[in-house]
Amino acid sequence: MAGAVLTVEPMAALDTRTDRRPSFVGLLWGSTVGKKTAMAVSGIVMLLYLVVHMLGNLKIFFGAADFDAYAAWLRTIGEPFLHHEWFLWIARVVLVAAVVTHAVAAFQLSRRDIAARPVKYAHKRRRASYATRTMRWGGVILGLFIVWHILDLTTLTVNPHAAAGHPYANVVATFSTWYGDVIYIAAMLALGLHIRHGFWSAAQTLGAGSAARDRVLRTTADALALLLTAGFVSVPVAVMTGLVS
């Protein structure tokens, strides 16, 4: 059964006692530990982005003019050194790379993990924390959410208002639909859980954890999860309650 996994995703033993080793990237991508490192790094890139994104979102509480101006400003960052929207596109490329790296590594590792434990125990028993056990499905949910989110507020393909250059109105339009609220809030709760285990886990993968530092890391993970979820969810809640309209 192990063989079957290996044909799908070759992870041959690194040659023992050899002076010729693959490149740094090759070593990383060629092993489970390295792939986890790639996931940790890409995860942290996305996490940093999310913090900025969440803070930006809060501008909605300052009104349509502020919010729309902020959105327009995003397109001018780096000018005149960078051309109009170049910064945005660079950020998008980096983010797509991070998402793809994260997802492909997760997919490949998950396949391995499932194949490594083909027979379940007859005696069932609850294992690990909820956040840990929901990493895979949570990741899938977030992946689907990103697709919808881009179609909704970037390309405006599925947005009920779909007015280019008027993000405030578009956001309010989305959160004025029941399904918009449900999708968004559900995804943000999944995000919170994902970050809660993911941040701590990434710290371990990158070798930053230790018994002495564990409390700090776990508290930071919980705080990040809570703040990001609360920050993001505050927008649809504000629209629903009429605080933002």
Binding site: M11, T32, V33, R117, M135
Partner: peptide
Amino acid sequence: VGQMDSEGFGGCTLA
């Protein structure tokens, strides 16, 4: 780690 992987053990999810 290379040998561990080639034996078909799963990866670590820090459960």
